[in-house]
Amino acid sequence: VTPCPDIPPMMLPPPRRPRPGMVNQGLYHACRVLTWQMLSPAYRQVRQKLDLAPLPWYGPFYRRRRTHHVLYGFSPSIIPPSRHWPESVRVAGNWFLDEAQTWQAPESLEAFLAAGDKPIYVGFGSMLGDDSAALSEVFLQALRNSGRRAIFATGWGGLADVDDDNVYCLT
C-alpha cells in the first residue's frame, strides 16, 4: 500500500494496460484516504478510550514528523520492490510459522470435519461490521439454503458465534 508510480495499487483490480505513474500515485493516495474514512470510526473510539488526540480526516499517513516503517510479507520474485519506495519500506519475503509443521487441530474441529461433507469457509479477515448478528444470520440462511456445512471465522470479520450443528465457529 506504499504509493509509487510503477506498481498499481493492490486494492484495485489490475489495470488492463499500464497506467501512467502519476495516475498510480494519485490512486494510492485516494485509496489511502477512502480506507481511512472507513476505518477511522473504530480508531476514533479506541483513541478516545486511551485519551489520545484524534487523527486528521485524511488519516495518519501524511505526518512529516516521523517515518513510517513498512515490512511487506510477500515474495520479491512475485512483485519486485519499487525503486521509488523509501529506505523505510522493505520486502521481507513470505512469512512462515515454525509451528505450522507441528500444529494440531482442536479435537472439536477434527470431530466436525469427520462428521460430514467438506465444509466451506466463511470469514472476512479484519473487516469490521456494525451488526454482526444480522450479518451472521444472512450467511447462516444462505448456508441453510445451500445445504452445505461451514466453518465460520468470527474474529474481526463481524460474524457472531452461532449455534448450529452444520457450523463450526472459529473464534
Rank of each mutant, 00 (worst) to 15 (best):
Y43P: 00
P60F: 15
Y58M: 12
P60V: 12
R63S: 15
Q25L: 14
P60D: 10
R64A: 12
Q101M: 10
P13R: 02
P56I: 03
R32W: 13
V89L: 02
A30Q: 04
P13Y: 04
P86A: 08
L113R: 04
T67P: 02
V70D: 03
A105P: 09
R149S: 04
G116L: 07
L55I: 12
P8L: 00
L12M: 05
L34V: 14
S108P: 04
W103V: 13
R64C: 13
A133P: 02
P54C: 14
Y28W: 06
M22S: 11
K118W: 13
V46W: 15
H84R: 05
A105E: 09
V46R: 15
L128D: 04
L34M: 13
P9D: 00
G26W: 04
F96I: 10
T102V: 11
P5C: 12
D161Y: 10
T102Y: 05
Y121P: 07
L143V: 05
D164H: 08
Y168V: 01
E99P: 03
L143K: 03
T154S: 13
V1R: 03
R83P: 01
R149A: 00
Y43A: 03
R32S: 06
Y62A: 13
A111F: 05
R19N: 06
K49S: 13
P60N: 11
Y72H: 01
A92E: 03
H29M: 10
P119K: 02
L39D: 11
R44Q: 12
L50N: 08
T35F: 11
P9C: 02
C169N: 15
D117A: 15
V89Q: 00
L140N: 00
D117T: 11
Q104E: 13
R63K: 14
V70H: 04
R32P: 02
M38C: 07
W57V: 15
Q141L: 14
S132L: 06
P76I: 00
D130H: 06
P54I: 08
S88G: 03
E87K: 08
